[in-house]
């Protein structure tokens, strides 16, 4: 209606897809990394680095693609640091990931305040210039389809890219030898050695891919969806990504579904918060007396409930988090 969405359902679907894009993108990267045996709990930090780098690069150059590219590159560079420490330095992956989170939090805050000082000294605005952010792109022709058009084909470029990436990665994992290599790396590195697949290089590349995805997801948050940077603006989304990869039992379909589910829950609670005022329904009216904190809690409680109902034990990739080559002790 007002946003160009015919119905509430259409809006909910559109917003879910839009808001879940960074989760999906970072999730796909993390999934590939974990399939090769590298668990990077620093994904939150990588996203945050993506946010700040995308914003500053885009603002400084005035080019949106520079921001996106720089974010992906920065994500990869940070992931390379992590992977180097973990794969060649043989450090514990969890500890290194936690350190990466802390590093990113401090670094992004520092960079942002330096950037603001810099702008203040030069008398510049810290706002993102008009052309430096991405806008929604309606796919010609398709965006006029009923329901599907406004939901699926009026999104950000990175959404389309993520969708393609999801399908592509699914295809790669299912039908190509590269997919076999990825899964073998995390499941049985001994087999990879016997097959002549370089274990550490493979894992390194996967970690880089994960970093690139996370960086781009950060860019999505800062220069696409909000055109802003804020301290700690990822707000725990990286941790949700980790959870969703487990939730999806290391498979791409369930992972994407999980991201959409979580995104939908958040949209739903925000819509509920609104409709309790705007709809003249006695039930909705009764909802007004519910403290808003319970609405904010809703996605997390619902996710817990879903897990409790659906969860089944899945061990995950066998070599997940283990160093290679393994030491005797």
């Amino acid at each position: 209606m007002s946003l160009g969405h015919e119905s509430l359902a259409e809006f909910l679907c559109w917003q879910t897809l839009s808001a879940a894009t960074p989760l999906m993108l970072a999730g796909i990267g993390e999934l590939v990394g974990e399939l090769t045996g590298v668990i990077d709990i620093g994904i939150e930090g990588l996203m945050l680095i993506g946010c700040i780098v995308a914003y500053t690069a885009a603002a400084a150059t005035g080019q949106a693609w520079m921001g996106l590219g720089a974010a992906a590159a920065a994500g990869m560079a940070s992931a390379a640091l992590f992977a180097g420490v973990v794969l060649w330095g043989r450090a514990d992956q969890i500890v290194a990931g936690a350190a990466l989170n802390l590093l990113a939090l401090g670094l992004s805050a520092t960079l942002w305040s330096l950037y603001q000082n810099h702008c203040a000294n030069l008398g510049l605005s810290t706002h993102l210039p008009r052309g430096a952010g991405y806008d929604l792109v309606a796919v010609p022709g398709l965006s006029h389809l009923p329901f599907i058009g406004p939901v699926l084909f009026d999104q950000y470029t990175l959404f389309y890219a993520t969708l393609l990436l999801a399908v592509g990665i699914w295809w790669v994992l299912r039908f190509t030898r590269l997919g076999l290599m990825i899964r073998a790396l995390g499941e049985s590195p001994e087999t990879c050695v016997a097959c002549g697949i370089p274990v550490r290089l493979g894992r390194f590349l996967a970690a880089l891919f994960a970093g690139g995805c996370a960086g781009a997801a950060g860019a999505f948050l800062s220069i696409m969806r909000t055109k802003a940077f804020a301290f700690d603006m990822t707000g725990g989304q990286g941790f949700m990504v980790l959870a969703l990869v487990i939730f999806g039992r290391w498979a791409i379909g369930p992972l994407v579904l999980g991201c959409l589910f979580f995104g939908a829950l958040n949209s739903l609670q925000q819509i509920l918060q609104t409709t309790r005022y705007t709809l003249a329904d006695p039930w909705m009216h009764a909802l007004r007396s519910v403290p808003f904190e319970f609405f904010q809690m809703l996605p997390y409680v619902a996710a817990l409930a879903a897990l409790a109902l659906l969860s089944r034990r899945h061990p995950g990739p066998r070599a997940l988090g283990q160093p290679w080559p393994q030491e005797v002790a």
Partner: peptide, 11 residues
């Protein structure tokens, strides 16, 4: 396929 094949391509 993992052991026999070569390259990253289709199985």
């Amino acid at each position: 396929a993992l052991a026999v094949g070569r390259g990253p391509g289709l199985i």
